[in-house]
């Protein structure tokens, strides 16, 4: 059974249909790259998976559990949504770190609050901190844990944001153009840590315009155009030998 199964997802903003019948699936440990020109609906798709937008139709299932769709009533409680969205993590283009917290505090905040809600913060505090330090170390930030976001470079901020998302142990980690706000120099260091996550079989969906990176790191590439998945498959096929004229046109812009 696939880890993630998205079926016939549709989403409109007022008159414009932004997602038109999106279906795809992925297995545990897969890295899926979503490519496509801007405005094609990539961000909206990730936001639907993370419950920041509510799709109009379709289903989203993780591990066979139906998270969205299936005709349940529209009003789902906040607690329920919070539980469901924790299957996913999201790394934003603009990092969105919390400025009043250090790198370490940014990573510890959500797990600490979750533990407090469960009533076992005291017993878990040390473990949460240790886990956060391990994650920051993996991101190459062990000497930056006590710095505030404004004291960090964009690349470092994005790496803190990745550690922060991983601290909640999502099944699937989503990235929305994680390097688009960065200089080429800083892009490299972020791509490097994402690559290291891929080598450790972290399940990821990565929206990116870095074609060489997508080709390299993805097990599966999805090309989106005007709210549809026009082509999907192994990177060798989609990126090197696209079937669709539109895909060829899009990729020509990156050569």
């Amino acid at each position: 059974m696939a880890l993630l199964e998205v079926k016939n997802l549709k989403k409109s903003f007022e008159a414009t249909q932004v997602l038109k019948d999106i279906s795809f699936s992925m297995d545990k440990g897969d890295v899926v790259s979503i490519i496509g020109s801007s405005g094609s609906g990539k961000t909206t798709l990730l936001r639907c998976l993370n419950f920041l937008e509510q799709p109009d139709q379709g289903t989203i299932s993780v591990n066979g559990e139906l998270l969205f769709g299936g005709g349940e009533s529209k009003k789902v409680s906040e607690t329920e949504i919070r539980r469901k969205r924790l299957h996913f993590g999201l790394v934003f283009q603009s990092f969105n770190l919390f400025p009043q917290y250090t790198a370490l505090q940014n990573v510890c905040l959500a797990p600490s609050l979750a533990a407090k809600e469960e009533g076992d913060f005291r017993s878990k505090e040390a473990e949460i901190r240790k886990n956060a330090l391990t994650l920051l170390d993996q991101m190459g930030l062990s000497d930056r844990v006590n710095n505030y976001p404004h004291q960090l470079s964009g690349g470092q901020c994005q790496r803190v944001a990745i550690a922060r998302a991983m601290a909640m142990h999502p099944d699937i980690l989503c990235f929305d153009e994680p390097t688009s706000a960065l200089d080429p120099e800083l892009t490299g260091e972020v791509l490097k840590v994402i690559r290291s996550l891929a080598n450790r079989h972290t399940t990821m969906i990565i929206v990116t315009h870095e074609m060489a990176f997508a080709r390299d790191v993805a097990d599966y590439v999805v090309f989106m155009d005007q709210g549809r998945i026009l082509e999907q498959g192994r990177p060798e096929d989609v990126i090197d030998n696209p079937k669709e004229e539109r895909t060829r046109q899009f990729l020509a812009g990156y050569r």
């Binding site: 906040e78 996913f88 770190l97 919390f98 905040l109 909640m168």
Partner: peptide, 23 residues
Amino acid sequence: IPVGQYEAGQVLGLTRTDIFFRI
């Protein structure tokens, strides 16, 4: 306050109350 601050809190599973008071 940029909407991204709220959304970052939401995707981390924070409650609305925690987002307001902690972030």
